[in-house]
Structures are given as C-alpha cells and as structure tokens.
C-alpha cells in the first residue's frame, strides 16, 4: 500500500489548508489585521519560517512557480531547505528569477524588481505584534488595535530620536495600513517599506509560533509612521554594488579578510546576477576579471 507513505500535496492536509485559507481571506478583507489561526507543527523549528511555509503550502497549486529567498539571497540555508521541501512535497516548479515566480516566500526582504499583478509575496514573521515591546499584555494590545490607540507607537519613535537624534529603527519599521491598522512589516529593512505601498502583488504574512496571519492586498496604502519634523527616510548607501554597480538597491556588507577588507554587494542575488548578465559591472567585478 504505497498510498499510506506519501504526503498530501504540499504537506498539509486539506482541512488544515482550508482553515488557513479562511484565515488568509479574512486577513485580506481586513488589511493589516492579525487573524489568529491554528498553526500546525511543521517539520522545522520555530523561527525558521513555519508561518510562511504554512501560508505557502495553503495557497500553492501544481501550476505555481515558487521562489524562496532568505535575506534577499536564493542560495542561503533557509531558502534552499524550504525550496527543497516544496519540491519534495508538492513537486512544483521552482525558480530563482523574480519575474518568473508566482509565489515568492521571503525572509526579511522584498525583491528589488517591481512585483506585478498575480504574484504573491509570503513573509515569514517572527513577532507579528508591533506594540509588543512596549505593551507586553496581549489583551491590552488587542484592545489598542480595536480602539485604534496607536500613540504608543510614536512613543517608541520619540525614544529613538531622543537617544540617537534621528529615528534609529532600521528594520521592522511600523506602518499604517489603509489608514487603519498599525502593522509590523516583519523584520524587513525599512528600505523595503515604500515597496509595500500600492504594491501590485498580494502580500501575505505568516507567524507560526505566534499563530497569526495578516495581509496587505494589492493596491493598498502602506504608510510608514513618522513625525512631522522627522519624516520617514530609507537607508542610503555611499557606494554602488561592488559586483553589478547597482545604485538605489539594498546592500549587504561582506567581510573579505582579516585586514579590514570589505565589499558591499546587492542583498538581492537574483537582481545582481540579472544586471551582470546584462553587462553591468561594479568595481570589484572588473578587478576580478582583470586578474584572471
């Protein structure tokens, strides 16, 4: 009896998927609202994307093309193992190219390339509650969301400015969705916050340990919180990418040796490869070729 040993398509059983889809639909209907769901045990530890994986498993169909990124990269541990997981349990096509993917599961980055209609971005979220570090009581934070009492969020930003002279929050930067719910955009760098605003793609957020799903439907207002005299700003980098010469992208710092050598390269590996294939070159790439 071979049937007993196989997994259901995309690992989760159909009743579980149904439950998660209902949570997703509710989340889409109330943008930014955290919908509780009965999160399942997944064959990976909490903190490795159990929420994102459950969301992906519930929306995945046989025709889908999946891309998984971890801090922008397609080839890091988390991305490789989740991609392999879905290849095994759903036998879906996978890709590293942003353009070709229909579902992109991401850990803490939004691809540089503009997403289009029909694509879905699934975020892995560790702590979905933006008010958590200021208000530890769940009963209280729920009430604050319900009554739209978001003054506390600005207390956090005030503290930032008072201590550092500017808003020093660089990731998990709180946003207000569609003028109503304040939402934690998961620990993406604030560089990516503007990409969430009026995005053509559907954005789903899954927090496995905290058992919450929330969503930003396509073409939704996503506004980063700020002060009138300290407006929201994204990070900027002094140099372009050392490999592809791209500017206006998010860069990772790579330590090269123990003598202080370092380089800044695109965090989005697919974007970087694309650009190099098109003939763009940064200063480190040119040197490497000259050496060969």
């Amino acid at each position: 009896m071979n049937d007993l040993a196989t997994y259901n398509f995309a690992y989760l059983d159909e009743q579980t998927k149904r439950m998660i889809r209902r949570a997703i639909l509710k989340a889409i209907a109330i943008p930014g609202y955290q919908v509780p769901f009965a999160s399942r045990e997944m064959p990976m530890p909490y903190g490795w994307g159990t929420g994102g994986v459950q969301v992906t498993a519930s929306i995945l169909g046989p025709e889908d093309v999946l891309k998984v990124i971890d801090q922008g990269a397609d080839d890091t541990t988390n991305a490789v193992s989740i991609r392999a997981f879905f290849q095994k349990v759903a036998n879906v096509a996978v890709t590293t190219r942003t353009k070709e993917a229909t579902i992109i599961q991401t850990r803490h980055r939004i691809p540089e390339e503009k997403l289009s209609e029909g694509q879905t971005l699934v975020y892995q979220v560790p702590i979905p509650e933006p008010l958590r570090f200021l208000e530890p009581r769940e009963t209280e934070t729920r009430k604050m969301h319900a009554l739209e009492e978001y003054g506390l969020m600005h207390v956090k930003l005030y503290e930032d400015i008072a201590r550092n002279g500017h808003i020093a929050t660089t990731y998990a930067y709180p946003v207000k969705v569609e003028g109503r719910y304040v939402m934690d955009p998961s620990p993406t760098p604030k560089f990516d916050n503007p990409k969430m605003h009026m995005s053509e793609a559907l954005q789903l957020f899954g927090a496995g340990r905290e058992k919450r799903i929330y969503a930003v439907p396509p073409y939704t207002d996503v506004v980063s919180l700020d002060f009138d005299d300290h407006p929201f700003e994204i990070q900027s980098f002094d140099k372009p990418c050392a490999l592809c010469g791209a500017e206006d992208v998010y860069l990772d710092e790579v330590i090269l040796d123990d003598k202080g050598g370092r380089m800044f390269v695109c965090s989005d590996t697919d974007h970087c490869e694309d650009r190099r294939a098109c003939g763009h070159a940064g200063h480190m790439l040119a040197r490497k070729e000259a050496a060969e």
């Binding site: 009492e149 003054g151 506390l152 600005h154 207390v155 005030y158 503290e159 400015i161 008072a162 201590r163 700020d226 002060f227 009138d228 005299d229 300290h230």
Partner: peptide
C-alpha cells in the same frame, strides 16, 4: 525616558511634531 512619559498623552491624541 521622562520626556516620552510626559509626551505619551500628546502623541495619543495625535500630536506628531517631535
């Protein structure tokens, strides 16, 4: 901080000028 403690109510009623 003390400043944020005093300012919390102001921010709660919508003051957005640091």
């Amino acid at each position: 901080s003390a400043g944020a403690n005093v300012g919390e109510r102001l921010m709660a009623v919508g003051d957005r000028h640091y």
